[in-house]
Amino acid sequence: MKPKVDLSKILLTSAGPLLCIIGAAAVIFGYLRGEAAVILSKAIMVCMECIGIG
């Protein structure tokens, strides 16, 4: 007798790799539309809020 196909298990195991691909695509898209430049402009200055001054 063949084991039953568990759809929820398949979804659980395939969601991880699928989200990795979606995540990587979103990183590239965000980089291309200039978000990394915003981060860089913030991160190269001392963040006054972070250190508790501003």
């Binding site: 989200l19 995540g23 965000g30």
Partner: peptide, 22 residues
């Protein structure tokens, strides 16, 4: 990014968190 005037959603950071998290 979300606090900047140019963008209200960060594909870059959400994508990074999704990639590492997944």
């Amino acid at each position: 990014v979300v606090g900047s005037s140019g963008f209200k959603f960060s594909y870059y950071v959400v994508g990074f968190l999704t990639l590492i998290g997944a």
